[in-house]
Design a protein around this nucleic acid. Structure first.
Lengths: 208, 208
DNA sequence: TATAGGAACTTAACACTGTTAACCAATAAT
DNA sequence: ATTATTGGTTAACAGTGTTAAGTTCCTATA
């Protein structure tokens, strides 16, 4: 049996991912995962150094998922502004659609877990890089006016992240419609790329 | 003894606030608070329904603190754009300067604690309202071009929140300087208010 | 074929956590 | 004088992450 060794490891990952999505991060305990996997809690420690390491593995999967989503949605043939628009919406869509994943990926405070290994940050950074390359492309084509793509890419990420996290936390004024909020956020991001972006009558941002 | 009753209550609040700031949210346990207060852990339950209620009280204090900071920094006599600039920077300053407070105020996921009581949200909303009034003022004076101040106020809050939370979590690309990042975020927010904002040579946003 | 080694897994335990039930002492009210 | 209330306690429950020690079982070598 070649890598049948890692059968349980996969089961643990799959069930904990499922439990994370279904029952939330707070209800994710080693013992609960274990009973769901039909093994003892300590068996998990055979494949993961501790709970944080298991969490890190899930986070990594999350970043892969997000990156795939962004990459497949992004069409490098389209105009940069359209691409930026798409990327923003896909990111928000991911965050609102996978709140549990999003939480451990972006909202889990470092103080709550072991330092996320530096080498794993590369996967997280791939998403920012994707934005950055897009900005550089837009700059080269003269569509954007950006001096420091890396800084702006991080600002864009921060803006969208703020929107997603506050929405998911239910901390956006209830009198503000979710759609209007999202549209305004996206418009604001796109506005930062070049010129002024206003809202068209079909709720799509239009560059004036 | 008039309200000597609430002596212990005050001590609990003060020490837990101090412990929160000094040792972080994760290390805040009822028993630790109790030993620090020279009382038993169960005594805390005489004054707070549970740990969440204690946390809510701390959150409330945090919002008061933030509101005071914003209110005293805001000078309604100055031009709206200057005021917006000040508010943004004060907010960021608060978030970076009080990461523990900020965490329980804005990053503590609802799933991790009992629903934050609706009536207490008013204190949180006072900060958004302050931004909103400023936007309305700017609109009235013709400095801003804003159709829905409440939506935009929430977007501004989200943008700044995203920046603060990612900075505090150490999730901003290390190759991006903190100052440059903050300046770009503020510039981006101000740009959304009207026209295009570019960075002057003194790193201060200038409206063109 | 017998035995040593190691891999996969379990049980029992430790030191924590939030929270509750039961109890006790002192003060205030009838 | 007796009752009720206030403010506090101790002991316990059920849960947490984690570790040390022990157990099975399969595989490879003497």
């Amino acid at each position: 049996m070649p890598d049948n060794n890692h059968d349980l490891r996969r089961t643990i990952l799959d069930t904990s991912r499922r439990m994370l999505v279904n029952e939330g991060f707070t209800n994710l305990s080693m013992r609960k995962i274990a009973t769901e996997c039909d093994c003892s809690a300590t068996s998990i420690y055979l494949y993961f150094k501790n709970k944080d390491a298991l969490l890190h593995a899930l986070i990594e999967e999350g970043f892969d998922l997000l990156f795939e989503k962004l990459k497949t949605a992004d069409d490098s043939q389209r105009p940069p502004l359209d691409r930026a628009n798409t990327i923003c919406r896909e990111f928000i869509d991911f965050g609102l659609g996978n709140p549990e994943y999003y939480e451990i990926m972006f909202q889990l405070h470092p103080r709550h877990m072991e330092r996320y290994p530096v080498e794993k940050f590369r996967k997280a950074r791939k998403n920012i890089d994707l934005i950055m390359y897009l900005l550089e492309d837009g700059s080269k084509k003269g569509d954007f006016l950006i001096e420091e793509p890396r800084v702006v890419a991080n600002v864009i990420l921060a803006t969208i992240h703020g929107a997603v996290s506050l929405l998911n936390a239910g901390r956006i004024d209830s009198r503000v419609g979710k759609e209007a909020f999202v549209e305004t956020v996206v418009a604001s991001v796109l506005a930062g790329l070049k010129g002024t972006v206003i809202m068209g009558k079909d709720q799509q941002p239009v560059v004036s």
